[in-house]
Structure formats: C-alpha cells, structure tokens
Design a protein around this nucleic acid. Structure first.
Lengths: 209, 209
DNA sequence: TTGTTTAAGTTATAACTTTCACAAAAACCA
DNA sequence: TGGTTTTTGTGAAAGTTATAACTTAAACAA
C-alpha cells in the first residue's frame, strides 16, 4: 500500500480536467477512456491507470460521467474550493500574471507584493500591491495557499524564505535558480527561456535529420 | 546506434547552463560533476550521463572547463546564434513576454502579432505589433524560428496552422488545448494554471500526511 | 619514471512508467 | 432470464530513466 503516485500522473489530471470541461461544454454527458485519451493525446490505458491511482470513477461498459469525473478530479487536486494565490513581484510579468490568473474561476489572487515603493499601493485587476514587509501580516489575516514569484533570480532565495516564514507552502517560480527550499515547502519552476531552448534543440535536430 | 536521447536530458541541459553561467560569473574556471549536480539539485551520475549523450566534454581527474562546457551546451541547444522569436497575441501576457524575452541576450523578439486592430502599430520594448495577416510576409523576410503564443485557447488551432504555414517550426503555447499539430512543427505547452494545480495537490497531500 | 589520487565516462542494476492483455462488471437485447 | 456487447479496472510485461558501481584517463608528487 505504501506506494507513491507518479508525479506525471498528477500532472496529467490537469490535462484531463481541461478536456473534460470541454466535453461538458459540448454537452457530452458520458465519456470513454478512449475518447478522453484521444482528445488529450494520451493512450487510453494510461488514462485508466492514472485514474485508478485515485479511485474508481467509471462504470464498466459505459464510461465516465463527465460532470462527476470533473468534480472528482477537482477534489483530488484541491480546487473544489477556490485557491488563494499571491503574486510576488509586480513588474511586467507579475502584473500580467495577476490579470491572467484572475480570469480563472477557481483561483483568487488575493494580493500582490513588491519591494519597489513606487509600485506599492497600486491596483491591478482589483488586486492591491503591498510592500513585501507586510507579507507575514497579510498571510496571517488572509491565509493564501500559493505564492507565484515573478522576480529576478537574484532575490529568489530571500523571497522563498520569506514566503515560507509567512506560512505559504506552495511556490511557483518563473526564475530558475539553485536554491535551498525550506522544509515543508513545495517548489515548482516555469522557466520560459528553458522551454524555448528545448524547442530550439528539437527544431535544430529535426532539420538535420 | 539508433537510440534516442531522453527529452528530460535535453531539458536538463538548460538547467546545467544556468548553473554553469553562475559558476562562470563567480570566476570559477573548472567545475566537477558533483558540484554541478549539487547546485542543480541533480545526482552527479545523472549529470555525467546526460552530458555523455552529446559527447565528451570533461577531463578525467580534473572536471569540466566551465567556459568550454557552456559553449558546448549552447551549441547543442542551438543558442550559439541568437534565436529569432515572434510573439502572437499582444495582450497582457504577450506584452510581458516581449519585455521578459528581450532581456535574454540569446533571444531576439523580432515582432509581435495581434488580430486586434487597436494593438497593431504599437511598440513594446522596441518590438512592433503587426496584424496577424502579415505573418507570412513577415516570416519570409525575417525568418523567425520560434513563435510564442499568448492567446486564448479558442484561437489556438487556427493560429498554429497559420504559424506553420509561415514556416515556423517551434511553437510555445500558454494555452493548453487538444489540437492537431501540423507535421514538422514541434509544440510545447506552459500552462500556469496546471502548475498551480500541481502545487495545490502537493500541499494538500502534504498536510494530510 | 612510477605510484597515487581524482573525477570523467561507462556498464550494470534498480526504480519507475507505460503498454498490453484480460478479467470483471455493468448495460442492453432478444 | 441468459447471452452478448461494451468498457472499466488491473496485474504482468515491456520499455524507459535514474542510480550505483566500476573502469579509464589525466594530473601530480615523490
């Protein structure tokens, strides 16, 4: 029983969720693993295996009830209740992220933080920018679950430590930097440059072959 | 010899590159696999294995010459020459991406595109916004290698097809959508919502255990 | 030289992930 | 009601990736 669910399986839940929502919006009540697999670009056995890590959601001979499966996955992921997010760094990327995330119904961007006094006090999509020094106080009052860091790599360690002290346990960073992640904190990176570099390699390799 | 290099290994090259650049900026001339592994949070045997897919870059008993290894990885990835990038979608995210990528020396954001006439003609960080209809003409003249799509999922298929027709073979999308990727095109997704969802699962699970 | 140390490169093993193939269960039909 | 069809859920096999262990080469000191 003491086995762990592969991280890739967890990540694929998000993909399934998107495909399922689309199916729901098309008015489909039932979906089969083969159909879900096709729309997600994944094999049907993998879809079934991934879901089996979390329980039994389908009916044999019938498929999955779209609405029920969406609810189930949302609960597994933990987005059945809106997730409170803060943005650290109110530069170009930070402000774009605020607007972007505010449009997603199950996220609430509850605040933004910047060390630059000129940005503090401004509002982006109804989200107020606070000085970083107020993060701990803010966190005690509002209890955000996740911090999205849109800051340069230089200040990353300091910021992660601060976020951790404020009791936030999930951190998404747009700067990739080898730092010491405080215990109890889960850190995740999205480095746009790396993604483009990966593409660069692939297209370069493709043109040679 | 017809084995393929794991995608994860290619992706890790970008991580190594960042750590190596840091080491270089600290004035370090040589680096060992153990040290590179430590700063990247990867095991040393994996570092050596990853590099071995591409050649022999080190000296036994000594380590890797930092500068030489950086050059080697840059060439493997294909960023020894600046990469020309276009941004499609000049909304909040698109404009932030222009500014973000313009700061990276080995990327050149050569143009942006938007279907909204009100955005066409404007300039962001010295990058001009063109109407999407001009993409093919622009591409013939400028030959960008990669398109970054900061557009909503609804228009994704259409845009990918257009980008493909313009001869661009690498596409990075910020919207995740099950679409048909044209032959010869390499597509890569960065879905911020999915990354936060993954964190949500992890912190939820951590707090239960 | 020659022996010793160090660390890359490589092979072998272990761990993990995906696919395959089939049993079990629900639905449907005659 | 019983047989047939369908599709899930799952255990085993295959394939892939990571780690550990080992071999080789370079550097250095005596």
């Amino acid at each position: 029983m003491g086995f762990s669910i592969p991280e890739v399986s967890i990540r694929r839940l998000s993909i399934y969720l998107r495909c399922l929502r689309q199916a729901l919006s098309r008015g489909e009540e039932w979906i089969q693993s083969t159909e879900l697999a096709r729309t997600c670009g994944i094999s049907s056995s993998l879809v079934r295996k991934d879901l089996s890590y979390f329980g039994e959601f389908g009916i044999r001979g019938r498929g999955y009830r779209v609405e029920k499966l969406i609810k189930a996955i949302e609960e597994i992921i933990g987005i059945d209740e809106p997730i409170k997010v803060i943005i650290v760094g109110a530069g170009n990327l930070g402000r774009a992220l605020i607007r972007h995330l505010q449009e997603i119904p199950y996220f609430r961007v509850v605040g933004a933080f910047d060390k630059n006094a000129s940005k503090v006090g401004s509002t982006v999509s109804g989200v107020r920018v606070y000085p970083v020094a107020e993060m701990e106080k803010f966190s005690r009052e509002t209890s955000p679950q996740i911090a999205v860091l849109a800051i340069p790599p230089e200040g990353l360690q300091e910021t992660v430590d601060m976020v951790s002290r404020a009791g936030i346990r999930g951190v998404l960073s747009f700067a990739l930097q080898g730092i010491k992640v405080p215990p109890g904190v889960v850190m995740n990176y999205v480095e746009i440059a790396s993604e483009i570099e990966f593409l660069s390699y692939k297209i370069k390799k493709g043109s040679v072959a």
